[in-house]
Amino acid sequence: MSEVKIKAESRSEFGKGAARRIRRAGLVPAVLYGHGSDPVHITLPGHELMLALKTPNVLFDVELATGGSELALPKQVQREPLKGYLEHVDLLIVKRGEKVTIDVPLSIIGEAVPGALVGVEHNNLSVEAEATHIPAQIEVSIEGLGIGSQIHAKDIVLPAGTTLQLDPEALVVNITAAPTAEDIEADMAEAEAEAGVERDEPDAPADGAAESESAEAAASE
């Protein structure tokens, strides 16, 4: 698991105007809370924070301006919907040796048999793990799986010290036959019929036009 040291500064200004000023200075507003302590409002260096958050469930060692440090996991990350920059981050305090329940991304590896369609029903797996040993991802192999194969949560091999929190019978991966062009056309026709959409049929040439075309063809021979 990745552990990143990051230096925090105290924050005393609040509101949208203050948040904009903080972000213009290259910082990100954040709040640190958990374990019954009062929330601590801080700012974090934007570039370092952005790079660290590229690792799922990264563990932060937050150095506080008041002295000391706290281990924390990102609980909620708010991004500007269009430009994608960080607006605010909630950090949850954790302790070494503490067990936490968290969603871990799944990584599908390998390839199913030709002509198969791989359906992933869960992109993350809810597990319980020690706070400082959360896996960055859990691999699920579909190598050589045939049509009709299924992988349920209970079938996935978890890293040592990690226990499943999702329903063991939950379907995670479903291997089905890839649709043919005819299947797709039939599905589209059915959807259009249900929506009341009528397809335009190609216009048949008028009798006069047909006779003219026949005459022109004969003249060219």
Results as ranks from 00 to 15, higher is better:
E128H: 06
P39Y: 10
R20D: 10
A19Q: 11
L164R: 09
A18K: 07
A189L: 15
R21W: 09
I147F: 02
L86N: 04
L64Q: 09
G208Q: 10
S149G: 05
A189M: 12
P205F: 11
R24G: 04
R21A: 14
V89Y: 03
E194G: 13
P105M: 11
P74I: 12
G67A: 09
P45N: 02
D38G: 03
P114L: 00
A177C: 03
E87Y: 01
I93R: 10
H88I: 05
G84L: 01
P45T: 05
A136T: 15
T55W: 02
K7N: 07
E192K: 15
E194N: 15
D103P: 08
E192H: 15
E182P: 10
T66C: 02
Q137I: 08
E182M: 08
F14A: 11
V100Y: 08
I102Y: 08
D61S: 14
G97H: 05
N124M: 10
R23L: 10
N124K: 01
P105E: 12
L44S: 03
V197C: 11
V100S: 05
V77L: 00
D61R: 15
Q78K: 01
P74W: 07
H47G: 03
G17Y: 11
L166H: 13
G161M: 07
T66H: 09
A136P: 13
M50S: 09
A19P: 13
S2G: 06
G84H: 02
E211I: 15
A204E: 15
K16M: 14
I184C: 03
T55M: 04
A170C: 06
V104R: 01
E13V: 14
K99V: 15
R11S: 09
K154R: 14
Q137K: 08
N174M: 09
A72H: 04
A8Y: 02
A153E: 08
L64W: 04
V62H: 02
I93E: 04
V127G: 00
I151N: 04
A18N: 11
R20H: 13
H152Q: 14
G17S: 12
S149E: 13
T66D: 09
I138Q: 00
E169H: 07
L53K: 04
